[in-house]
Amino acid sequence: MPRFTPAQLEAARDRLVPDVVAPDLRVLFCGINPGLMTAATGHHFARPGNRFWPVLHLSGFTPRLLKPAEQQELLSYGLGITNVVARATARADELTAEEYREGGRLLAEKTARLRPRWLAVVGVTAYRAAFDERKAQVGPQERTIGDTRVWVLPNPSGLNAHWTAATMAEEFARLRVAADGAPGGPADGAAPTVRAAEPR
């Protein structure tokens, strides 16, 4: 991971980061918006301390721990990444309510076009704001977008102390079981397998 000066990171503010997407994915993961490290590198969930990539592996979505720079490899597993809001900020609380609502509208259009089996929004607060679902909780949602079902996952940011990598991996694994099942099948299939955390 390259080292960036504060000035270089600040220069990445408002930069757009290309999606990692293709039609008919198993799961399209949706972050809140790119952070400055993601914008500077062009790699999603690139900030050190973000647990997205380790949890993706622990939950069984990927056979090995991918680096952010290997994000294009996700497509070979039927996975992709987009964001609710496209512009990069230092913190998610810099986004306005209007940006979330517009982001939700654009995300619904993108989802309808790409037709993933599941849309997985990582961050319940962002999901509530984007889709005006104020009482939504982590887990499968009633909402569908065309034939795409929606699952809300915990935010993998290192700032989210309510979830450990292990408990987060359990929730990701529940989604993996659902995504691997028959379309329209039960959201909670067989008990998911979660990999043991590897020593650091």
Rank of each mutant, 00 (worst) to 15 (best):
T96W: 11
G80F: 01
R15E: 09
I81N: 05
G35V: 07
R101F: 04
E133P: 08
V21D: 12
D19M: 06
G60K: 15
W118L: 05
G103N: 10
G35A: 13
A97R: 15
A120H: 07
G42S: 04
E73M: 12
R117M: 11
R128Y: 07
A130V: 00
E94R: 06
N33R: 08
A126G: 15
G104S: 12
A40S: 01
L56I: 08
L95K: 04
V84P: 01
Q71D: 11
R51H: 15
G42N: 10
E73I: 08
Y127K: 03
V122F: 07
L66Y: 15
G139P: 04
E73H: 12
P48T: 12
R113L: 08
G139C: 03
T62Q: 10
H43C: 13
V85K: 06
A97K: 15
L106N: 10
E73T: 14
L75E: 01
E99N: 09
V55I: 08
P116D: 03
G35K: 01
V27D: 04
I32M: 08
R101Q: 15
N50K: 14
V124W: 06
A90K: 14
V20S: 01
L79V: 05
A39S: 10
R13N: 05
R101W: 01
G49H: 02
K110P: 01
R91C: 03
K135D: 13
H43A: 05
I32E: 10
E102P: 06
V121N: 11
T96P: 09
R51Q: 12
L74F: 03
R13H: 12
A120F: 11
T96R: 10
H44T: 05
R64T: 13
V17A: 01
I81H: 05
E94P: 00
D19S: 13
F131R: 06
A86G: 14
L66W: 11
P48A: 14
A88V: 01
E94G: 05
L36G: 10
V55T: 12
G78A: 07
T111G: 03
L74W: 03
L66S: 11
F61C: 10
R87Y: 00
K67P: 00
L74S: 06
Q72N: 12
R47W: 04
E102D: 14
V27T: 14
L36E: 09
V20A: 03
L36Y: 07
A97N: 15
L119M: 09
E99S: 08
T62P: 13
A69D: 09
N50G: 14
R134F: 11
G60Q: 15
I81Q: 04
Y127Q: 07
G80H: 02
G31D: 09
M37E: 11
E98R: 12
A112N: 13
Q137I: 06
E102M: 13
H44V: 10
V84D: 00
E94Y: 06
R51E: 09
L107Q: 03
L79E: 03
G42E: 07
E109R: 12
G31M: 04
D132N: 14
R47D: 04
H43I: 00
Y127D: 06
V21K: 14
P48M: 11
A112C: 02
K67R: 15
A39N: 04
